[in-house]
């Protein structure tokens, strides 16, 4: 039964190692107050991750309903543009249809 016990010991060690790495990472208290101070001072609204186009640099501020910013439904030009879901915020306009009598 040596092989079985050895395997169980190996898998258990591996599981404990993985779990402790994750637990150590989760327990690591990160002070975000410095970043929050920066955000407050500079009025930052977005992460500076994708600087290839204005609507990818500031996805929360962009009019995302117009990909490629040329016309609605245009093919996406920038690779990261395809990562950002078209979820424009702050818009409340609706299309309404009035059906006329007799039509």
């Amino acid at each position: 039964m040596t092989r079985g016990v050895a395997y169980l010991a190996f898998i258990l060690t591996l599981a404990i190692l993985t779990a402790s790495l994750m637990a150590a990472g989760a327990a690591k208290s990160v002070d975000v107050s410095e970043k929050q101070q920066l955000v407050k001072a500079l009025g930052i609204t977005d992460l500076s991750l994708f600087s290839e186009a204005r609507y990818t640099r500031h996805p929360s501020q962009a009019d995302l309903f117009a990909p490629f910013q040329d016309f609605p439904g245009a093919l996406e030009h920038f690779p990261t543009g395809s990562m950002i879901p078209p979820n424009p915020i702050g818009f409340s306009s609706r299309i309404r249809i009035q059906q006329l009598p007799g039509n």
Binding site: G25, A26, S48, F50, S51, E52, P79, T80, G81
Partner: peptide
Amino acid sequence: PLLKGWSVLFPKFQLTPAVDF
């Protein structure tokens, strides 16, 4: 590279380990 796309100025960042169990 997937996140970077065509960005020239892409930040070098060290992520804080956070796992959704």
